[in-house]
Amino acid sequence: MRLLVLLWSLGPLLWQLRTSLLRPEALVAPLLEGSPWTLANYQLVLSGDPPFWRYLSNSALVGLVTTGLTLLLAVPCAYGLQKQRGPLRWGVGLGLVAAAMFPTVLLFLALLEIARSFGLANDLLALSLPYTALSLPLAVLLLRAAFADLPVELEDAARLEGLDLGQRLRHVLLPLLGPALASTGILVFLASWNEYAIALTWISRNDLLTLPIAIARIGGSSVFTIPYGAFAAATVLGSLPLLLLVLLAQRAIVSGLTRGAVKG
């Protein structure tokens, strides 16, 4: 059973790995025929113009800025929301759930207009603004759930000791929220790393492309001409950071998703 599950989830990925290590002529050879491995595809991708690591660093930059900005805005919002009572709490909560479910591709046209009129197109840092907004609903919901899980008495005790709001957040609440911050941050980073529609329309300069767009370009231009090995190599390189992230933070991701699920 376990093997079957692994084959289902990993099979297509392993095939990419294999493809990335084959010479072009071996790709069109009959299935599973032995042929020498090669790193030529990786060399090709890494020596392209711009080199592939450029896309990696673009995506990493946008991802990190987005994650930081999202947490910066989501933490106070989640705290404030958790303290609300009555229709406002209910209304904002429902609005956040609706926004979290909203198919973001429907937003790209208006966002593109905004980007053009403010001169934000082809600006990686500006790209993290819509990304932050798209991640905020889920982040706020997750963090609000985390705040709700903290015993009220902890904050009461801190208030009695004379800690103001900033001190309470810094010394008491945020340290206890560590795991929730980590899992929320990872989910935000993943979403930003993988976003397509907005990056596709905002970024046109070749050296500023984010990873999904760059890989799609490499692959899209080559589906019929088959330098497929290069595309596969790009896929593997682009997936490695995610693989590491998922393996290292599996527990955090699962618990983050779980909370989001239950509280949402």
């Binding site: 095939w15 990419q16 999904p212 890989i215 692959g219 596969a232 896929t235 682009g238 995610l242």
Partner: peptide, 25 residues
Amino acid sequence: GALRALTLLPWALPTTVMALGWRWI
């Protein structure tokens, strides 16, 4: 734990990347 992480991998990858992977397959 490892099994969960590995099964989660397809979800974590960019949609476009895995769509191109399927195109190759």
